[in-house]
Design a protein around this nucleic acid. Structure first.
Lengths: 339, 339
DNA sequence: ATTGGCACTCGAGGCAACGGAGTGCCAGGA
DNA sequence: TCCTGGCACTCCGTTGCCTCGAGTGCCAAT
């Protein structure tokens, strides 16, 4: 009963503060929410909540604002995932179903997510390592330089320039292409090392050096340090939160421009089935310490193809963001999984 | 003599204001620059300059700031292109020479440009229409859906999914591939329509429907509305200019996120050999009316492969920006032209 | 445990005074 | 004819002061 109401008060504080961005006081709280008690009682509860570290006051005689710990409790125990409105569901569907290729899917979804949440949105391209090879192509640029092109089942096209040890003619290129396709087509990239392990030994002697070079390059580029990519949208929304960031805005923007940073971020939170929320100091990267991140993985089956999420001020509509992230992840997963 | 000094005064005002972002007064001017005259004389000149619309005062009894017209005169007649420092030249070279493929070149150069100018940088990917076909690949996804992949001489890889009227087997795909490659390899994309015009008539009857479909898709996708792309970097630098923008920051950020807007922008100013400067109201798009754009084209030979430039506050170091833009364009042009 | 009352704190906003930077104008000098 | 020093005026930004109001903490009463 007592405990119960204290949590109600915390919830009310979070909800009001997210809306107004102003410290919320006891009187306003008691009025705006049906707590059934007087402001004085609310004050006692607030006092207790502050004692426990869930809320704080910017200065004496101001209202209270939630701490990171307060938001955490709110997210964990006090809020459901707000269901999306019908209009929002429709928007998602109509926005994504027109997509024609992978690039288009990713770009549309990242913009959609930014629009739905009014935050900065991040969508990772499907990881190569989770994809399968659909086709491999080798094109001659000069006799000693080949362009290696790989098309995956998610529609990604990866390319690398390869310098071969000795000049090759079109005949050899054709053979190389055949060997590689035979070995890799339909294979998942994580299985690639195994699939090509003794390829060279089994091949015609004159192909071996080229094959070795190609395999080495391919392994290095696509498995050891695969090129992961992300799309970003909605940085304009940061101006809405300019007050929340102040000094930290510039480092934040710089971080968001770094693919590396975003990949690390997404990499940490791309569980399927779970929407991860990182609040303020919970983030591992300095530049994000003043933000909250709501993210999840997308894909079909056991392992995530990629991740997506939003970055915004700690003062965020968590239920709404979580719902949007989850919904978009589901659609994107279906689209890319089924393709 | 008289005219001469007035222009010196304008130049001094622009230079000081760009540095300080504060209205500059007669006394400070006479001190900081070797004008050889007293503040009172400077005042007379300023008065005249204001009369002619080159400078203005934010309010009575404040210093003067340049108007768009003032900046224009400064750019046209009062400033050379500031030569880059040795360190900057070295930075450009070492930054760009490590690039491995097209994506890498573009991404590196856009970041470089943002860093050099401390503004927002934009780099357009080489236009398809100016490129030549290096290789065409056709991959079966399902019997009725083909993936068309085209590799250009600038290293761009374009792909489209094509629905064919009737199922095709690998044999036919091979033939289609052969026919298209024979017709298009080495051709510039602008010449493509001509090259494929009577391809279908000359082909084996059973190939015609497929060929027609493919050709239609290819023409539409790659010639009629080719997918142009741009890269963006340095939006964090806008926080440096936050004061210059105020209300207009959000629309500006939104515009910068729109590929369409950036493409229009670059398209208007991608002359080779000329660094175009658009100051404030000179810009054709509303969101850019409070900014200045410094841009040029890059490429080899007669027509530009693409464009690049920077967007920043009107209070910009024009000589520096022009030098950086020109230098980066030169390097990028060499890199992509020679590839 | 809850409530109303009360004294206290502190920031926001309004207002007046002040100082300083800058201007325009004018009369005198090269 | 052009430049210069002097002078009065304007207006912005800052500072200090005051008041107002929202909010708190505590206490006695229910």
């Amino acid at each position: 009963m007592l405990e119960e109401r204290r949590l109600d008060v915390l919830r009310a504080i979070v909800e009001d503060f997210v809306l107004s961005n102003e410290p919320v006081g006891s009187k306003a709280l008691a009025e705006r929410h049906q707590l059934g008690v007087s402001p004085a009682t609310v004050r006692n509860d607030m006092s207790a909540l502050e004692e426990e570290g869930y809320i704080t006051q910017p200065h004496t005689s101001a209202g209270r604002i939630p701490t990171d710990k307060g938001y955490r409790l709110f997210v964990d125990r006090l809020s459901g995932v707000k269901p999306l409105s019908r209009a929002e569901r429709r928007a998602i569907q109509s926005f994504l179903e027109g997509a024609i290729d992978l690039d288009d899917v990713v770009r549309r979804s990242v913009r959609l997510l930014a629009q739905l949440t009014r935050q900065v949105a991040v969508v990772q391209y499907p990881s190569l390592s989770c994809s399968s090879v659909r086709h491999i192509e080798i094109v001659t640029i000069t006799p000693a330089r080949l362009l290696f092109v790989m098309i995956t089942d998610t529609g990604r096209v990866e390319q690398r320039v390869v310098e071969v040890p000795a000049p090759v003619d079109d005949l050899i290129v054709g053979e190389l292409r055949g060997v590689l396709n035979a070995a890799l087509n339909g294979r998942r990239l994580v299985d690639a090392p195994e699939a090509v392990a003794d390829l060279s030994d089994a091949a015609r002697p004159d192909l071996r050096p080229h094959l070795n070079t190609l395999i080495a390059v391919v392994m290095e580029a696509l498995v050891d340090k695969p090129e992961e990519r992300v799309a970003l949208a909605g940085t304009a929304n940061l101006t809405l939160s300019a007050l929340d960031f102040a000094d930290t805005l510039r480092p934040l923007l710089e971080a968001l421009e770094e693919q590396v940073v975003l990949l690390k971020l997404i990499g940490e939170v791309r569980d399927l089935d779970t929407v991860t929320v990182r609040i303020g100091q919970e983030n591992s990267m300095d530049a994000l310490r003043s933000t909250s991140v709501v993210a999840t993985g997308y894909g079909r089956g056991a392992s995530a193809l990629g991740g997506l999420g939003v970055v915004g001020p700690r003062r965020m509509d968590y239920p709404g963001a979580m719902a949007a992230v989850r919904a978009v992840a589901k659609y994107v997963g279906d689209l890319l999984g089924a393709d």
